[in-house]
Amino acid sequence: MSQDKSQLGPAQRRREISDHVLTEGSASAADLAERFGVSPMTIYRDIDELEREGVLRKFRGGVTAQPSGVFESNVAYRKKSMRPEKEAIAAKAATLVEPGMSVMIDDSTTALELARLLPRFEPLTVVTNFLEALNLLSGERGVHLMALGGDYDPLHDSFLGVPCVEAVEALRVDVCFVSTSSVVGDHAFHQEQRIVAVKRAMLAAAGRKVLMIDHSKIGRTALYRLAPLSAFDLVLIDDRTPPDVLRSLDESGVPYEIAPVRAPA
């Protein structure tokens, strides 16, 4: 017998609202009120709290986990989004790694897919501020793992802030792999200033800089400019990227490689 969701306490109801929206992408307040057997006013209070916590964002009449120009999606939602494309890009990125290298990866979910492949290149030094990547690699005896500290942000599952930037600035790595949430024209952008600060420090600390972006990032709006595409030694994109975008990259002279996405089984 299914649980009567109207009997849930506020904290548990908000967790279930969050899980539902992260799975579906968005939901209307009316649907949520019916689903949880509470009044619209109660749902709007829940939505206000979830937005305050940065888990979800409101729109007229509902709530969404999808990004906007000033809001990056929760890491739990990003991990589910564009998974085949991210896996393809990570596989292409892995061809740039060799045993003995020092590799820095950011807190993007594309970089997390790359982290899953890194143990095959042991011995390797891996530097990251992404807690899930740290946990993933912590049991690998051939990986010298370096954690970048700072202020822990549960929405990104990573460490950020001035201490993280200073930790990055003390290092020099062979290659840095980063992703970002937006590419418009010949520049990469991101919604959050503190994320931009860490990514810029990572790029400055690397001998080789690689940008990993799936085609959903192309043309998406984000508030802060991260870097021109020309600042990267290589851009990795998936083969579902529109031809006009590829032509633009060709015309601008930005070096790029295309990652083939595996067809669904």
Rank of each mutant, 00 (worst) to 15 (best):
G142P: 11
F59Y: 15
V162N: 09
V183L: 12
K79N: 06
L8Y: 14
Q191M: 13
L246P: 05
E72L: 09
P242D: 01
V127N: 04
A201S: 12
D250A: 12
F130L: 08
F159Y: 10
V126I: 08
V55N: 04
V196M: 01
R57D: 02
L136S: 10
S179A: 15
R14Q: 14
A29H: 01
F59P: 02
T128L: 06
V75F: 13
A111Q: 13
M146K: 06
L8G: 07
E251D: 11
M212V: 07
S248W: 04
P123A: 03
T128K: 00
I213M: 13
I213A: 15
A227D: 05
P243E: 10
A11T: 05
D46G: 13
H144D: 11
K92Y: 00
D244Q: 08
S39K: 02
K92F: 02
T95V: 03
V196P: 00
A259D: 05
S18Y: 08
A90S: 10
G253M: 03
A222F: 09
S108A: 05
V63Q: 03
L145Q: 12
E87S: 09
S39T: 14
K5D: 00
H190M: 09
R15K: 14
G54E: 08
G69S: 02
T180M: 12
R194Q: 13
V198Y: 03
G139A: 07
L246S: 06
F59G: 00
A206W: 05
R220G: 07
H20W: 12
S248K: 06
H20F: 14
E192I: 07
G185D: 09
N129C: 14
S179G: 15
C176G: 11
A201F: 06
E51M: 15
E251Y: 01
A227L: 10
D48A: 11
E192P: 00
L131C: 11
M82R: 10
P119K: 05
L203F: 00
Q66G: 03
D186I: 04
E34G: 05
A91K: 14
T221S: 13
K92Q: 14
M82S: 05
S248Y: 01
V168M: 06
D233S: 04
L22F: 06
S102Q: 15
T109C: 07
I89R: 08
A197D: 12
M101P: 03
A204H: 08
T110K: 02
S18A: 15
T109G: 05
M104T: 01
M104I: 09
D153R: 14
A111F: 06
K209I: 01
P163W: 03
G207D: 13
D238Q: 06
N74G: 08
Y44Q: 11
R13G: 10
L249V: 07
S102Y: 09
S216E: 08
V175F: 02
T95S: 07
T128P: 02
L96T: 01
Q3M: 10
M1K: 03
R240N: 13
L160Y: 00
T95G: 04
L114N: 12
A29C: 12
M1H: 08
D186H: 11
V97R: 09
D106T: 07
F71S: 04
D106K: 04
I213V: 15
R247F: 05
V21S: 06
D151P: 00
G253L: 08
A265V: 13
M212Q: 07
K79F: 01
R208F: 00
E53C: 14
L226E: 00
